[in-house]
């Protein structure tokens, strides 16, 4: 078994998740995440040769629905958690790309 240890880079993970992490907490996160990865890594000790990978415990397939539309949720309800709106129905978010004009 390949026992090369995977190390966690907290800054990189935080960057991907767009999170700013307090310098003082980094070592704690490092330790916690490393524990999780090491724990899951135990699986690599198993011999999985000839076993087809699966993402599910339940052996189901082709679970789908027919193409019928309905609209059960009002905009008011759906936008209740929106941080801020403009023009009554558009969600206002921090600027992502440069643009012109006012919202």
């Amino acid at each position: 078994m390949n026992k090369q240890k995977k190390t966690i880079d907290v800054d990189y993970i935080a960057g991907l998740a767009k999170l700013e992490i307090d310098e003082s907490k980094k070592s704690r996160f490092q330790e916690e995440m490393q524990n999780i990865v090491d724990y899951v890594d135990l699986l690599s000790e198993l011999n999985v040769e000839n076993i087809i990978p699966t993402a599910h415990a339940a052996q189901m397939k082709n679970v789908w629905r027919e193409d019928v539309s309905e609209n059960d949720f009002s905009r008011e309800v759906m936008l209740k958690n929106a941080p801020e709106l403009f023009d009554e129905g558009t969600i206002k978010v921090p600027q992502v790309l440069p643009g012109e004009g006012t919202a």
């Binding site: 403009f86 558009t90 206002k92 978010v93 992502v96 004009g101 919202a103």
Partner: peptide, 13 residues
């Protein structure tokens, strides 16, 4: 769909 303005962006789902 996101639209971008001078001070913010707007999102329509």
């Amino acid at each position: 769909k996101s639209n971008h303005y001078a001070a913010c962006s707007g999102v329509d789902y």
